[in-house]
Design a protein around this nucleic acid. Structure first.
Length: 278
DNA sequence: AGACACCTGTAT
DNA sequence: ATACAGGTGTCT
């Protein structure tokens, strides 16, 4: 489900709800979802939520200076915030109970239909042991990121397609199937192009378009194709602005020709053969 | 670099 | 019954 804009929206929606709250307990309803790498069974109890951050598609919850909760929602993971004791439903796997100053007990339920999502509890210095997290490329919305850096990082994947390179998370962090297709369409660049073949001018266009799309999607509170909702169960609205994702066969919004569909890096890829020539 | 696996639900 | 889905770790 969630790519950078959706994870960022979860972060934004969750922050005012739980920042400063004290964790009472973390309860596992399903085994194999929560990884506690600290070696201490009830390590989170009594800790205060001191920060909520995002890196790529990872959500990081600071629990004081020496404990960190890291979550990856993968395809269908959700955090549901509740102010009443939650009635647990199918696919509710982890329940955090917290004491919120001035409010009383509140709950955060990790729900995940496909059970691909993961939560880690670890010391901050152990975060580098989460391979996917430590291998992430730069944040695409970081104003420091420049097009020459993007071009060089893409060039490290010179023998694969742009689509595959942008999905890899190591070139740039946080894009998934939706936002890669949308960014390439807005850039007018074909997804089958070799990742090492971009000119500096094209890399510059790709970076600008990628940032434009991602920022617009964050502003729209993410894309809700199907499952995705934020911590308060609110859907996003960027699905109404999608130009190519999910629109194969429909007319291109720029030229009117039918959008093409292919399979790249194992993922359905939609593009306009006219506006994104090889 | 690409195929397959991990899961469950939904659409055809 | 089969194919496919906002992802990624592991195996070839």
């Amino acid at each position: 489900m969630p790519e950078l804009p959706e994870v960022e929206t979860v972060r934004i929606s969750l922050e005012p709800l739980i920042l400063g709250s004290r964790i009472l307990e973390i309860r596992e309803q399903t085994a194999g979802v929560l990884y506690n790498w600290t070696g201490q069974p009830d390590v989170a109890g009594g800790r205060t939520v001191t920060g909520l951050r995002r890196r790529g598609k990872y959500l990081l919850m600071d629990l004081g200076p020496d404990l960190l909760l890291v979550a990856h929602l993968r395809m269908t993971g959700q955090f549901k915030y509740e102010e009443q004791p939650p009635v647990l439903r199918k696919h509710d796997h982890i329940v955090l109970s917290l004491e919120k100053p001035g409010t009383g007990p509140v709950w955060l339920v990790f729900h995940d239909t496909r059970r691909f999502g993961r939560i880690w509890l670890l010391r901050p210095d152990q975060a580098s042991q989460i391979a996917g997290l430590s291998a992430l490329g730069p944040e695409p919305l970081d104003p420091q990121l420049d097009s020459e850096t993007l071009r060089l990082r893409l060039a490290r994947h010179s023998r694969t397609t742009l689509k595959a390179a942008l999905l890899a998370q190591t070139v740039v962090a946080g894009l998934g199937n939706i936002y890669v297709d949308e960014s390439l369409f807005l850039s007018g660049i074909n997804p089958q192009r070799l990742a090492g073949s971009l000119s500096l001018e094209e890399a510059d266009r790709l970076l600008t378009c990628m940032q434009k799309i991602l920022q617009a999607a964050v502003n729209a509170r993410g894309t809700s194709v199907k499952d995705y909702v934020d911590a308060l169960n609110v859907r996003g609205s960027f699905q109404y602005q999608l130009q190519v994702y999910g629109r194969a066969g429909q007319p291109c919004t720029q030229c009117g020709k039918p959008l093409a569909k292919t399979r790249l890096a194992g993922r359905t890829t939609v593009y306009c053969p006219q506006c994104q020539p090889v």
